[in-house]
Write a protein that binds this DNA or RNA. Sequence first.
DNA 1: TAGTATTCGATTTTCGAAGATCGAAGAAAG
DNA 2: CTTTCTTCGATCTTCGAAAATCGAATACTA
Lengths: 225, 225
Amino acid sequence: MTAGPQTTPQHALEHLRRAVVAGELRPGDRIRQEEVASELGVSVASVREALTVLEQEGQVRYAPRRGYFVAELDVADLEEIYDLRRVLETRAARLALPRADAATLERMRAAAAACAAAADAADIAAELDANRRFHFALLDAPGRPHTIRLIRLLWDATEPYRALYYSAPEERRRSLAAHERILAAVADRDADRLVTELDSHREEALAALRAILGEAAAVPALAGA
Amino acid sequence: MTAGPQTTPQHALEHLRRAVVAGELRPGDRIRQEEVASELGVSVASVREALTVLEQEGQVRYAPRRGYFVAELDVADLEEIYDLRRVLETRAARLALPRADAATLERMRAAAAACAAAADAADIAAELDANRRFHFALLDAPGRPHTIRLIRLLWDATEPYRALYYSAPEERRRSLAAHERILAAVADRDADRLVTELDSHREEALAALRAILGEAAAVPALAGA
DNA sequence: TAGTATTCGATTTTCGAAGATCGAAGAAAG
DNA sequence: CTTTCTTCGATCTTCGAAAATCGAATACTA
């Protein structure tokens, strides 16, 4: 039902995404096409198509005849991306809230629970996935596909970094608490409070990412593994 | 200086974009990979990579094992896209205006003049290009690459339709007049007026596009050429 | 020694063809 | 006459290998 990979490039794409979330591919890393291809038992052409998608999403950087690299973001990038998320998600949330029905709330509750369970199990990949489900359950109002596409793009852009900061237990706790407050605001149909909670949730994440980036800058050996 | 196609897929991408702007590829049309490839004297793999880019941009739709088609938008899509443009361009314009220097204004003036010249010559492709230069000269403030990327995505999504409505002379006149008012607002450093002018400029374009779409719906034979 | 040219290995880039899949036209059955 | 099944042609899909390119290590010059 979950629509597995229909084509070989899609298969390669999922593999690369998984590698990013799992932290196997870290910002700045080089991605060797041949290596990925033989790892998956597919041709480089398929890997290349997958990389083209990731390049459009801004997750990898492409230097013609030099290769593909996992995108590196600096603090300015992060702040711009989170600013854009604020602008777009605020609009999406205000449009979605009046239409959010019981099923929506239920999906959010389930995702929040999955988040907490993944946090307990220290399963970063599962938590990232559940976290996404939580937020998109609210924002993915039917009839606004382009809005969701853009928001998803912004989420994807910072995914490699989110994968890093989710390893910190105190961030997880903070995140779970924020989810509860967001859930309450939705249940109360309080748009202003919802927007405020989303803002501060984002602000906390941004602060954590800033810290990660500060460390990475202080320890450039990270890229040279 | 204009950075021609560095790679074969980029060459194919430019070719396809040109075909869209020129109206050779219309919404709903099927894109035969082999045909494009032999036309350009390149392999299908390269064409495929170019199509992957266009798919990510939302300009073509991909049905696995069926092929690629030029994306068709309905009125709801257009309204959502223009709503998103309003949200993002308003923010971009307000951030860019204080930083707009004499060179920026000069670039805008030159682009506006090129727009007028292209309108006189009835050169749709040139006018579309100059129109883009005009708007992005203002919005493309240094240090906000992600904002521009998103705005560009939204522009690209409606490009096939813009190519259609620019054939109407009265729309061109209206558009040129709007450019003058926008230019004046920028020269006066009046942010509120600038935003208002941009809004109404967009609203006029949306109205024209709605009309185009209405015709297309009334004459479905359009797609079956 | 510092700087520059050159070769070499690794990697990307591009192609052409074989294999897989789909939609449509036509045949057979009810 | 309608429906279902089958075959066929067109097209997409994927591959493996040849060709082009780049960076780094090496050799050379001043």
